[in-house]
Design a protein around this nucleic acid. Structure first.
Ligand SMILES: [Mn+2]
Ligand SMILES: [Mn+2]
Ligand SMILES: [Zn+2]
Ligand SMILES: [Zn+2]
Lengths: 159, 159
DNA sequence: TATTTGTTCGCACGAATTGCTAATTAGAAA
DNA sequence: TTTCTAATTAGCAATTCGTGCGAACAAATA
């Protein structure tokens, strides 16, 4: 994670300014391991900076992605999730509660796709799908629902 | 791919009816290797069955997913793509034109995620990102655009 | 101080998908 | 074959997740 000084430098080198809003959002991103959505970050930011605009949150996130300081994660049909972890890692998703967790996987760079010989590959992502232990428990009683309804692994768990 | 009879049986066994709309959409899905979107399928279906509703296309696709006859692919921020190929395979995505192609990858089942010990994993997906040969060519001249603008790998290439 | 450049924020707009329901239809039963 | 009815379709409203735009602000520069 960039230090405040380095963050300022990064912004400057991109012809941009490090504003209070940007500083806050960057900080919130790095305090959060949950791969938050823009809305979630907006809620958190609003608590510390009443009046901040959702538009600004979206804007700031896009900029960070553009500057290579943030990763977008598009899994499932819900809102885009953001990941400040730029290191080499992958993800597990709970199909029940939508939680996304970082995982490390060795051997990924050795994977060779046959059928894409004419592509210049730049990145490889691995996504594991499953059920987290927490959801596994509360699944025992739900045996009767034969037609499971997990259409879009919502990120909005408690609401 | 299910035969017409088997498809009818599948629907029946799910307490559902095989309507002309469903039959057509299923057929179109299996004629298309491009991992089409709902809108694309709607356009194709409309050509053969004027008046068919986009709502019905969405509905039918959801049902097929629920019945396990269709896969949803959520890559990038655009529309959901659908994949009738239920076999063991993965995908390459061209970050430029958004095309998605099937690839086979060996060794995937051997991948072990560290950090997800409390998950019961049910599926593993690998996505390769890159540039297809076609896009690679038409990229030569576009050197001046330092700030590339590939925000959401559009599925709508020619329109 | 005056000017230029970059930022925030509210609001309208857009794309993708779902909710609702009246009218229609497939297909089992008679 | 006709009847009957649960299932289905179609269409339009509503939702969700963002983006485009421009006026008001703020910071840097001259
Ligand atoms: Mn991550
Ligand atoms: Mn496929
Ligand atoms: Zn869970
Ligand atoms: Zn391409």
């Amino acid at each position: 994670m960039l230090s405040p000084t380095d963050l300022a430098a990064k912004y400057r080198s991109n012809g941009r300014k490090l504003t209070p809003q940007r500083k806050l959002i960057f900080q919130l991103l790095h305090e959060n391991e949950m791969h938050p959505t823009a809305e979630l970050l907006f809620a958190e930011a609003s608590a510390q900076m009443p009046g901040i605009s959702l538009r600004t949150v979206y804007q700031t996130l896009s900029e960070l992605v553009e500057m290579g300081e943030l990763q977008m994660i598009d899994i499932g049909g819900g809102a885009t999730r953001f990941d400040p972890n730029l290191g080499d890692h992958h993800h597990v998703v709970c199909v029940d509660c939508g939680q996304i967790r970082d995982v490390h996987v060795s051997g990924v760079s050795a994977l060779r796709p046959s059928g894409a010989e004419d592509f210049v590959i730049s990145e490889v992502g691995v996504v594991f799908q499953g059920v987290c232990s927490s959801c596994e428990k509360s699944r025992v009683k739900t045996v009767k629902s034969s037609r499971a309804k997990s259409p879009a692994l919502q990120a909005k768990s408690s609401k």
